[in-house]
Design a protein around this nucleic acid. Sequence first.
DNA 1: GGTTCCCGGATATTTCTTGTCCGCGTTGTG
DNA 2: CACAACGCGGACAAGAAATATCCGGGAACC
Lengths: 164, 164
Amino acid sequence: MKLSNGVEWALHSCVTLSQSREPVQATRLAELHGIPRAYLAKHLQALSRAGIVHATAGQVGGYALTRPAASVTMLEVVQAIDGIEPAYRCTEIRQRGPLAVPAEQCERPCAIARAMAAAQEAWYRALTAVSIADLAAAIDIDSDGTAMADVRRWLAESRRSLPG
Amino acid sequence: MKLSNGVEWALHSCVTLSQSREPVQATRLAELHGIPRAYLAKHLQALSRAGIVHATAGQVGGYALTRPAASVTMLEVVQAIDGIEPAYRCTEIRQRGPLAVPAEQCERPCAIARAMAAAQEAWYRALTAVSIADLAAAIDIDSDGTAMADVRRWLAESRRSLPG
DNA sequence: GGTTCCCGGATATTTCTTGTCCGCGTTGTG
DNA sequence: CACAACGCGGACAAGAAATATCCGGGAACC
């Protein structure tokens, strides 16, 4: 079980976006995190499609959160990047082989699939409990209250320096 | 996030093995579940390496659970097949870019990694709560108490018919 | 001791993720 | 109001991982 690499970038990008009400360009986000710009853009597109961020075109365009960071959960971001299909996909092997169960008796998922679904649900709950705002606050605390201010400063500075 | 296909086969195979104290050949398990024999064998090897099943060679060889089914958790099987590394791998992008955090301040995982680890832990807990015996019992109930008896009958019959 | 059968690791093929590029629409400017 | 520049959006290759498979080593029965 492996989670896409872009999930990490998307979460960090959302935390960064939560510190700016003005749109932030994909180039800035990529530079700030030291990651490939083109590939990050692809993931930001997924966030846009999911309605988490709003993309504005043009010279002063960029990405911005559509909702307050406190109302955006980690699960939303993860699912926007990684998709909504559950990790375990039952291929209904109980309906195959010499002891195949008739299809009419297979309306409910099999016991294994149910247990897996319950585990996935627990995973969902844990990710739903944490918002982007929570992450930003936790990161700020980890850095003794300097990280988010630094981000805001850097965003303002880069916006002043490059397009001017 | 995608879980390997072999996890499903391994879990079903373990449930089947829980119904037989004698070793069951990989060929039988593959036939019973309608899946490729060679590939299933590879996954059974993983279970063997993890100590969940014991493989005996020879004409009457095969696989058997090493412990009572009630003491084998789903998590053990899943991790034996899929590996133990967590789904989310933090690449420490906070240490990159113009606002890189010094490494000395990164002893603890970042807030995002911590939240992801908590979610994974919840997933682990849910899978630890279910044993192979629980699955066998649930599958039996789903079939009105006939499934496991059918499996035992089929195993005994196939063992009588083929090697005889 | 020969033979048969089964498990185990090394080997191709396919699928998917990662990474990249160029076209379209939008916005500021002359 | 036309122009030009910039950034977003979907289509296109490269690499990695999982899927599927084969043959060799070893054990049990005859």
